[in-house]
Design a protein around this nucleic acid. Sequence first.
DNA 1: CCTTTGTTTCGTAATTTTACGAAATACGAA
DNA 2: TTCGTATTTCGTAAAATTACGAAACAAAGG
Lengths: 99, 99
Amino acid sequence: MEETKEFYSVEEKKLARYAKALSHPVRVYICDILSKQACCYSGDLAEEVPIARSTLSQHLKELKNSGLVQGEINPPKIKYCLNKENWAEAQQLFKEFFK
Amino acid sequence: MEETKEFYSVEEKKLARYAKALSHPVRVYICDILSKQACCYSGDLAEEVPIARSTLSQHLKELKNSGLVQGEINPPKIKYCLNKENWAEAQQLFKEFFK
DNA sequence: CCTTTGTTTCGTAATTTTACGAAATACGAA
DNA sequence: TTCGTATTTCGTAAAATTACGAAACAAAGG
């Protein structure tokens, strides 16, 4: 079946993408931390969160792919922060969506 | 590994659940319609949306399970509406989350 | 009762997600 | 260069998601 070219709006697709990034409690938890206390390291999270480091790394990768989070290399650590611009975009999209 | 009993907060889990419900464009689309123009029937959606009726039915089921949407049987049709109470809860959760 | 209408459930397949431990990578320090 | 630390990627497995068409269901109308 030929994809009905761009049936969904850009906003709908963006919102779905951000929602997907937030569809797992650990990713919500990570964002909660990042939004409340600036940046943090993968290792700091690994000590708190009840999952394997490799799994945590996967979740961080997904958050990065969604655009909500960015990682700054600061060897040998990697500092994760919110991506302010995309965070604001997501905020706006959800705000519009719910009203 | 024993699940660290209730590691995530109730809010984090609820938000993840709502986010999951909104993690597919068609479900965002359906909610968009329901939030803008009251209720509608599965068949009305099926005519617009480029997916099989059975697949649409699955998505509606997920929206119902998440609590965002409710269905009223009105034979032989089923009328879908937003669940206002849960909608408001989700709105509030996302609002708090992003600020 | 049989048919039509609107919708969901079933069976199935392909893809994606989630998870883990082991191995790889990258860098600074000894 | 070798070691130690911090983190990611790889390989893999189990479970969930997404999708479809066929079959089932439920109620109204003939």
